[in-house]
Design a protein around this nucleic acid. Sequence first.
RNA 1: GUGGUUUUAGCUCAGUUGGUUAGAGCGCCUGAUUGUGGUUCAGGAGGUCGUGGGUUCGAGCCCCAUAUUCCACCCCA
Length: 453
Amino acid sequence: MKPSIPKGTRDFSPVEVTRRTYIFDTIKRVFQKFGYQPIETPVMENLSTLTGKYGEEGDQLIFKVLNSGDFLSKADAKKLEDRNSKALTFEISEKALRYDLTVPFARYVVMHQNEIAMPFKRYQVQPVWRADRPQKGRYREFYQCDADVVGSESLLNEAEFVCIYDEALSNLGLNDFTIKINNRKILSGIAEIIGKPELIVDMTVAIDKLDKIGYDGVVKELIERGFNEQDVEILRPFIELSGSNEEKLQVLRSSLRSTEIGKKGIEELETIFSYLSAFELKKAKVELDITLARGLNYYTGAIFEVKSNEVQMGSIGGGGRYDDLTGMFGLKGVTGAGISFGADRIYDVMLDLNLFPESAVISTKVLITNFDANAEKYALPILAKLRAEGVNTELYPSSSKLQKQMKYADAKRIPYVILIGDEEIQSGQLTIKNMISGEQEKLAIESIIAKLA
RNA sequence: GUGGUUUUAGCUCAGUUGGUUAGAGCGCCUGAUUGUGGUUCAGGAGGUCGUGGGUUCGAGCCCCAUAUUCCACCCCA
């Protein structure tokens, strides 16, 4: 049979794993610097834990795991007879692959509430799965790098998220990216002013597309979603909001002064910006964007999204505050806020921009050639010595033709080759070749160690 | 889930209105060079043309189904 892998999944070869590890490590280091601690959760959750958390569309994108054993005989005969897949799902599947890291984290917090100290700051870097149709930058298996804090209302957390994005992405070499920030309460305030608070989701979905379909497109969609011409006129200044963050806030302050929730949202944003003024950002641009509405419906306060300005790509990160995430698991009144990095998309962006350091792909530093059984025996203690000094070293495992061994070193981009033949064994002076310059010299093992370690 | 697109050697791709034995570049292997890779030269191997059906005297090319790639929606990292 011809081997293949499921749609939307990928193999990662050594170079890619090295690069991905570099991304993960860079992000993790920043999380740790801000006081976040790692946890891990199972790849599978109970299906009931996940359903209903991501909306109806989200539920469809959850990969369900078939029950073990003779699951069909235990299933409801009527539902089976009706061939009703939706109704049958819960009869034959009680586990599912995790869809994101936030809901499993909420579950974790509730289950471990007695062991964790609030505020609890955790980070988590693990794969998630979505039964989506793959495209560029969209996979069915991909990694999320999440940092969330629960049990702290302080907007300092939000400000620090901006710093985390800035530091991590700057460290990865991105030069031009924008952290967009908005507040769900402002969107609620706008919906309130229009007098259609129940249509807030339709409103946000429509204005979120401003970038893509333009103002006229947004208006068309708003009308389709139940707004009239008057509503659109009220909305217009919000959608066309421009200028600096301070200028935008000023406009919002006056137009939202009649709504309590809107005012609260502005206040929160002001606090975040005020915190941010105490920090110096490296490369990030921070932009108040009223059209930013993406993300899950459970956001209640700040909303974040990060986009690269150098490469055409979907968002490379997102997050926000959710006031009652653990409520659905029975723990009320615990507020949370978090952000996520899309490592796979960051990888694609960095590849496009050629940002991976060359050193990230070197694995072996020196190869010892294998002339014959005698030379191999002579090389073993040298091999051990180099490794003891922390030098990544390998001995070619068989006495193949030297040409083959050199080719191997070249293909693996090993920068040094040590040649040991009868001559070297007699003199104790080993030949070391620099594969980049092509130069070679004879050195005692101590000098070689000094050179490589 | 809707609409379109891609698939030919290990990789990137040619392949004419359906017509003899399906090609190129790169890579790989062997030798020139039994102690030297990356350069050069000579030679060589490698293909059920994504898969399964169908039309035809004849299919890489036409038709149907299916998988896969990428793209636009929907939604999202």
